[in-house]
């Protein structure tokens, strides 16, 4: 499954907020098709890494390479159009728009018609708009959301909002998908469904996935490799098994004294 070709490479990524170092010399090479976990205690800088990679905040130093191309310094929408999509920790749907429109907005860069087509309602517009809608509906049906297509996003229950957000990110046609705590606030049954879903979309859309998650169960059971961060720095990386036994990681999560007594 995991090939050796690297799709996303992050080198010495560093970010300061004022005098605070949020991310320090972060390195990561994502091989194609990987399902990689990024974990760490609260405030470790995980979400900041996502924001830096997607260009939402400018980085202080370092490089981000997508394939062979440097993407740091690009506008967020340019990065997304190149093929990196993401979801958000606190769901950011377009809450007053319908579920279908949420997905169709992600199609906008691939709409295939211009402003003049839409103002004049050319045949091209009608055709593409129909194709686009059908494609979006197909997407929603993968996520079992087709019945909710015309529902306003705000009115959906929490778990379904999460699913819409993932569907929307996939509609960007990405090669790399960054998921920020997809299981947050879900009940155990929803979490199992979600884990299946993540596996399924990776295979179906040939994705490379980088995943931030707090629920250890999720990370340990679906991720093939894991990077652990604490205070902006990488403190460990390896397979789930290696991470579970790593002394530094246990200390970071539980504190030094507890870890010592647990080990002793």
């Amino acid at each position: 499954m995991t090939s050796t070709r690297t799709v996303l490479e992050i080198r010495e990524l560093t970010k300061f907020f004022g005098g605070l170092c949020a991310v320090k010399n972060f390195n990561l090479a994502l091989p194609q098709g990987a399902l990689w976990g990024l974990i760490g205690p609260n405030g470790a800088g995980k979400t900041t890494v996502f924001n830096l990679v997607t260009g939402l905040i400018p980085l202080s130093s370092g490089e981000v390479l997508f394939g062979a191309e440097r993407i740091d310094g690009l506008e967020p929408h340019e990065i997304t159009r190149l093929g990196i999509a993401r979801t958000f920790q606190n769901i950011r749907l377009f809450s007053n728009l319908s579920v279908l429109d949420n997905v169709r907005i992600a199609y906008h860069p691939h709409a295939g018609y211009g402003l003049s087509d839409s103002l004049l309602r050319t045949p091209k517009f009608t055709l593409r708009e129909k194709e686009l809608t059908e494609e979006a509906l197909e997407f929603l049906s993968i996520f079992k959301l087709e019945g909710l297509a015309e529902e306003t996003a705000r009115n959906l229950p929490y778990g379904e909002q999460r699913r819409v957000e993932i569907a929307r990110a996939l509609a960007c046609k990405p090669q790399v998908l960054l998921l920020d705590e997809p299981a947050a606030g879900m009940n155990p049954r929803e979490i199992i469904a979600l884990m299946e879903l993540i596996h399924f979309i990776r295979d179906r859309f040939k994705l490379t996935i980088l995943l931030i998650e707090h629920q250890m169960r999720v990370v340990m059971s679906i991720c093939e490799r894991i990077t652990v961060m604490d205070f902006g720095e990488v403190i460990a990386r390896g397979t789930p098994k290696e991470i579970q036994d790593n002394q530094t990681v246990i200390e970071a999560y539980l504190g030094k004294g507890v870890a010592g007594s647990a080990a002793g």
Partner: peptide
Amino acid sequence: MPEKSDLPAAMSGISRRRR
């Protein structure tokens, strides 16, 4: 201004953010 020059990132020859 908070980016101090004595940080490892700057020393390791990695390019800074492009102007």
